[in-house]
Amino acid sequence: MRLHEIGEFGLIARLKEIVWRADPRVMVGIGDDAAVVTYERPVVMTTDALVQGVHFTSETMTPKLTGAKAAVATLSDLAAMGAVARHLLVTLALPPDTDVEEILAVYRGMADVCNMYDATLVGGDVVSTGGPLVISVTATGELLDKPLLRSGAKPGDILFVTGDLGGSAGFLHAFFADRLAMLNPLDQSLLRERHQRPTPQFIAAQILVEEGCTSLNDVSDGLASEAHEIAEASGARLVIEAARVPIPPALRAYARLGRLDPLDFALYGGEDYQLVGTVDVRSVGRVLARMQAAGVRFTVIGRVTDGAPGVELLAQGVYQTLEKRGYNHFGAAFRGGKEIR
């Protein structure tokens, strides 16, 4: 069944059935001119958008995975601010001949993420477009304490990341270069998982709020770009030790086979949705212990030093200025010889 056969209101009725969940914070949900919700603490708001053929493609993502990832990309910003998720508003721009089942699958993916992180989709908009599918997600959350900003790093702080980096970009590179078959099935699966099923780092964020994190950013556009944002906002100089950057073994295997540098994927790839930030050196032991107890990978990758704002990479004993590169919506980005973003 195509979208033009059921129309806007027929689609909304079906979507409402998928995303409805009991939420005492929702006074008015889908079905009126606007949603009405209640909050007890300061509210954090963020928005993100995915465009088919730019941010995702049917070659690498199913509709359900795309919906889940669209929600995660937005929720990741809430985690980076030290907030918990509360509500989502979703706008879809859809070609009239879109398969209705694909749209429902997108919302099932979003609903799964909402259920996992106690968030509720309370409304949005549906419009027609002659262009590609566009998914825009606005999310609200409540602060756990003070907001975690990019601007608090100071000399002497420790620089860290959660999880590992580069797997999503590595998967896209391998896929579009027709090199996935070079890897064993387990490594293929691990890289695919990094790209298709990221997770917002709410557990890590809660620990960082409680332990006094000095700055924080989510890794959506690559470690180099996000580190520069912290350096510029804080007026500080960051040093990243190349040997400490956590890279998944599957990506290292792919890089060896393709004679590539796996660090490039971590620094410039993006879509990892991990957290990079700084903590006071006196707190790092407690933070590490709590992260390990919670099952969160936490890696010290460098430090904050005196000097002009910027980022340096220390590799094999040599310091070099790290360019502010990463995913840029208005700059060409090529993966595997094919422009996909």
Rank of each mutant, 00 (worst) to 15 (best):
D99L: 11
A315F: 04
I247H: 05
A105D: 14
D97Y: 01
M1G: 07
P147G: 04
D32Y: 11
I240G: 01
Q206V: 08
P198M: 10
A93F: 07
R259D: 14
N217F: 01
L251C: 06
I6Q: 04
F202M: 02
L104E: 15
M45Y: 10
G310E: 02
A93W: 10
L11N: 04
L263A: 02
A293Q: 12
G258V: 11
E229H: 14
G67H: 11
R237V: 00
T66G: 01
Y327K: 13
A231I: 01
H55I: 11
I103R: 06
I247Y: 06
L223P: 13
R303V: 02
E142C: 03
G131A: 07
M1W: 02
V287A: 09
S58A: 11
V127I: 12
N184T: 07
L50K: 11
Y117P: 06
H195W: 14
T140F: 14
L238E: 01
D221Y: 13
P95V: 04
R256A: 13
T299D: 09
F265N: 04
D32W: 09
P249T: 00
V245T: 05
Q292T: 15
V137M: 10
K69I: 01
A294M: 05
L159P: 06
S128H: 03
G212D: 02
G29C: 12
H87F: 13
R297L: 12
E17H: 08
A289G: 10
R282W: 13
F56V: 05
A236E: 01
E101H: 14
Q52V: 04
G277S: 02
M116D: 11
A253P: 03
K64W: 03
V90R: 03
G10L: 08
F176H: 14
D187L: 06
V296N: 06
L11E: 07
G212C: 13
Y254L: 15
S76C: 09
C213N: 06
G307P: 01
L89S: 14
H4L: 04
I240M: 03
A49Q: 13
P246C: 05
D145K: 07
D145C: 08
G212A: 03
D118C: 08
L238C: 09
Q196C: 06
